[in-house]
């Protein structure tokens, strides 16, 4: 296997106290993260959180107003010439001339590289061969995404940035792309992707960075992020139960929260005794608990807790 030529630090990307502004809007407002080499890192966040700005600064499209970015140990703007062959980029929007079919579009990109992947094999791998002469303009969202993904990896890069790679894909295409991303990692490619699909991050990522309002609100492995919080017991009942009273009836260390109204969450050591205590309290107060579940919190719960539930 070819050696991976990352920065001396062993990180594919290092971002230190990054600030990027558009006029008065602070799109990225003091971000410090490190993306490991030869792994998959997912940048999660609601729309407008600053994911794309963060990624595009790493790609060299934006200049930091403050802070420092190193990609493969190099400066993405000053060392662009050296980095461009080594870094593959899949943009969130556009990037392919609409009148071209997949084959000609990919051949155009392949000619910029010394040793590109064979276009036919890559198209076959991504299920693009069957599209024949269909132009980019007439492709479905998922097909367009796969053409763009193929273009990002055709030059055998060390590092790829994928901005919402599975947006608009049906489940089968998504699985095929996940499979491809896992192989990229296994073959030694560093992958940085943005997504707002929790299951995508949970399935693929070695490292998750949750971004909100231009700041990093959490980082860690998916299991680390979810287990950092205690296990939970949740149930639904009529809104407005006295949570303090319930909490007092439970073993020490348990915390009861109602959020949103009618949804109750008990955090603490989830064991048969806790379940019995909650059920007993409900019986005592004439409360019918429905949808009572126990288990580890999902990444989605963590995400919503960190970034808020309100629509924006």
């Amino acid at each position: 296997m070819a050696p991976t030529l990352t920065g001396v630090s062993g990180f594919a990307v290092e971002v230190e106290d990054l600030h990027v502004r558009f006029g008065t809007v602070r799109a990225v407002d003091g971000v410090s993260v490190q993306f490991p080499a030869a792994g998959v890192c997912a940048v999660l966040g609601p729309n407008g959180a600053g994911k794309t700005t963060l990624i595009e600064t790493c790609e060299g499209y934006r200049r930091p107003h403050r802070g420092r970015v190193r990609v493969l140990g190099r400066d993405p703007v000053a060392d662009a010439r050296e980095l461009r062959p080594r870094v593959g980029v899949m943009l969130q929007e556009g990037g392919v001339w609409p009148a071209l079919a997949a084959g000609p579009a990919l051949h155009r990109v392949a000619r910029f590289y010394r040793d590109p992947l064979p276009v036919d094999s890559l198209m076959e791998r991504l299920g693009l061969s069957r599209l024949g002469g269909r132009t980019f303009r007439r492709m479905s969202g998922g097909e367009k995404q796969r053409v763009k993904l193929a273009a990002a990896i055709i030059g055998r890069p060390e590092l790829v940035f994928l901005d919402e790679p599975t947006a608009g894909m049906d489940p089968q295409a998504r699985l095929a792309v996940w499979d491809l991303i896992r192989q990229l990692r296994d073959d030694g490619v560093s992958v940085v992707l943005t997504t707002h699909l929790m299951d995508e991050a949970e399935q693929l990522a070695d490292e998750v960075v949750i971004v909100d309002r231009g700041r990093v609100v959490a980082t860690g492995s998916p299991s680390g992020l979810t287990s950092r919080y205690d296990e939970v017991l949740t149930f639904r009942a009529s809104a407005g139960l006295d949570t303090a009273l319930l909490q007092a009836a439970l073993p020490d260390g348990c915390v009861v929260v109602e959020d949103p109204p009618g949804s109750y969450r008990v955090e603490g050591t989830v064991d048969p005794a806790l379940l019995a205590a909650v059920a007993a309290w409900c019986a005592e107060h004439g409360v019918l608990a429905t949808a009572l579940t126990t288990g580890r919190r999902s990444l989605e719960d963590v995400f919503l807790d960190l970034t808020g539930r309100a629509l924006r």
């Binding site: 296997m1 070819a2 036919d120 094999s121 890559l122 299920g127 049906d170 295409a173 499979d179």
Partner: peptide
């Protein structure tokens, strides 16, 4: 639309994406 097994399996097996970056010569790119 789904991808058939043959389409997924046939091309670019393990190790196929091992990094081997490099730009084509400038004149060829232009």
């Amino acid at each position: 639309m789904s991808l058939t097994d043959s389409e997924q399996g046939a091309a670019l097996g393990p190790g196929a994406f091992a990094p081997r970056p490099g730009a084509a010569p400038m004149a060829r790119m232009v």
